[in-house]
């Protein structure tokens, strides 16, 4: 597989380490009232879709950036790749505007 790194272009997937579902970046608030339940779902449950999957890859043998790669799990077609940090910052912005996150 080849991963289109947003900064470095096409890179062999062998340079990367895989983590899994990109929803892991939405870490629940550990201080919230339902934290135990939220963490159970966050840590253990997965959508595991047969189709488009947003997932985290770490460019370990490269520039050490975490990417969110959008990939079809039935064909392995890659639909896009973003820097995870950019995605996380955008989500932060959106969330804090909505005032949801403490």
């Amino acid at each position: 597989m080849l991963i289109p790194h947003p900064l470095l272009g096409l890179r062999d997937a062998q340079e990367f380490t895989y983590l899994g579902d990109a929803r892991l970046i939405d870490r629940p608030n550990g201080m919230a009232e339902n934290a135990a339940e939220a963490f159970h779902d966050y840590v253990y449950l997965r959508d595991n879709p047969a189709g488009v999957h947003r997932e985290l890859w770490f460019h370990e043998q490269g520039d050490r950036s975490w990417l969110i790669v959008t990939r079809d799990t039935t064909t392995h077609e890659i639909l896009g790749a973003e820097l995870a940090r950019d995605v996380a910052l955008t989500r932060r912005g959106a969330l804090s505007e909505g005032g949801a996150q403490a």
Partner: peptide, 14 residues
């Protein structure tokens, strides 16, 4: 190290 980068870039990018 991977985990720390993950936390830095994905969990607490601010």
């Amino acid at each position: 190290y991977r985990h720390m980068e993950y936390a830095r870039q994905c969990l607490w990018p601010e």
